[in-house]
Amino acid sequence: MTTDPAAASAADLRTDCTADADGRITFALRAPSATGRLLLRLRPKKGQPEKILHLLDPEPGEDGRLRAVLEQQPLLAEGRWDVYLLPEPDAPRRRLRPGLRDLRALLGGHLRDWQSSVAVRVPYVTKDGYLAVRAWLRTAHAEVEGIDVTDRSMTVRARLHGATLAQGAAVRLRLRGGGGTERTVVPRAEDDGRGFSFTVDYGELVGDDDTGDRVWDLFVRAVSASTGEETSIRIGRLFDDVADRKEIFVLPAAVIGGAVVRPYYTVDNDLSVLADRT
């Protein structure tokens, strides 16, 4: 297999992609003369070697462009997957830039009932302008459906997927790096045992230190649908087209006892609360 030099230039190595509600992603290379296979690489942690690769075999579409489909199976491991074109088996792989991204089918993700395992995929553009896929893979998940913020508290509405609330269920706020320090809130459960809400009093999260900050991560204790056992499930928001929510969804802050308290989404789109005295 060969690749037209002009088509293989960095500027032309682009692919359109379309995501559907079931997790399937279709890639369509914009360079008509490009050939080869698509390679998805799970981005390794800094200093670690890459370990997981996934190859896709494209086929010519009606317009002559190569199209490759990432099916629902196998499930992608949780993390960030970079997308490459592999022109030939021994040729250097070339990272792909994004063309059109049709993610409309992802917008109603919060309206469906997800079963275990919860597998979410969102194509996105990296900071340096390349195409990647953000994947989440969890046994169960608690999806945030709304957050109401006051000057002293926040009330979160959420729904479980792949789990139901356990008898005596509790929302736990764990102090990051706090050696097991927790605050517990009793949730208000809906009749189906999956929807719930809870209110967090910010005053419970502010420490007595004059400086420094505290980060609290939110979990709910529930029963896994796959194992039937009680487990702690991270609370966050995954079911839409936003791969990186942290810098986009900025929630209001409140000042409590000299500390600035603000709920926020982490780099993994999980919900946490920062209490900052700096």
Rank of each mutant, 00 (worst) to 15 (best):
M1W: 08
M1C: 12
P5F: 15
P5G: 13
A7L: 13
A7V: 14
A8R: 04
A11D: 12
D12P: 07
L13G: 02
L13V: 06
R14N: 14
T15K: 07
A19G: 04
A19F: 07
A21S: 04
R24P: 06
R24L: 11
T26M: 09
F27H: 09
F27Q: 07
L29V: 00
R30M: 12
A31S: 06
P32V: 00
P32I: 01
A34L: 15
T35H: 14
T35Y: 11
R37E: 03
R37L: 04
P44Y: 14
P44T: 08
L53V: 08
H54K: 10
L55Y: 10
L55I: 06
P58W: 05
P58N: 05
E59T: 10
G61H: 11
E62W: 05
E62A: 08
G64S: 05
L66M: 06
R67V: 04
R67L: 07
A68Y: 02
L70V: 02
L70N: 01
L70A: 01
P74M: 14
P74S: 07
E78C: 05
G79T: 13
R80V: 02
L85M: 10
P89N: 08
A91W: 03
A91N: 03
A91S: 10
R93D: 05
R97F: 09
G99F: 10
L100D: 09
L100T: 11
D102F: 02
L103R: 03
L103T: 02
R104M: 12
R104D: 09
L106H: 00
G108E: 11
H110C: 06
L111M: 12
S116R: 04
A119E: 06
A119F: 08
V120T: 03
R121Y: 01
R121T: 00
R121I: 00
V122E: 02
P123Q: 07
T126G: 03
D128Q: 11
A132Y: 03
V133K: 02
V133N: 02
A135T: 02
T139K: 11
H141D: 08
V149I: 09
T150A: 15
S153D: 15
M154A: 01
L160H: 02
G162M: 01
T164Y: 02
Q167V: 11
G168I: 07
V171D: 15
R174I: 14
R174G: 09
L175W: 02
G180T: 00
T181L: 15
V185I: 12
V185C: 12
V186R: 15
V186N: 10
P187F: 08
A189H: 00
D192T: 03
G195D: 07
T199Q: 07
D201N: 09
Y202I: 03
E204W: 10
G207A: 12
D208L: 11
D209N: 08
D209S: 15
D210M: 10
T211S: 14
R214E: 05
R221E: 11
V223E: 13
S226I: 13
E229R: 07
E230K: 05
I233A: 01
R234H: 13
G236F: 04
L238E: 00
V242T: 08
A243W: 03
K246N: 09
K246I: 04
E247D: 13
V250P: 03
P252W: 09
I256R: 14
G257K: 09
G257S: 07
G257T: 04
G258S: 06
A259Q: 01
A259K: 01
R262W: 04
R262C: 03
Y265Q: 08
Y265V: 05
V267F: 11
V267Q: 14
N269R: 05
N269Q: 10
L274M: 15
R277P: 01
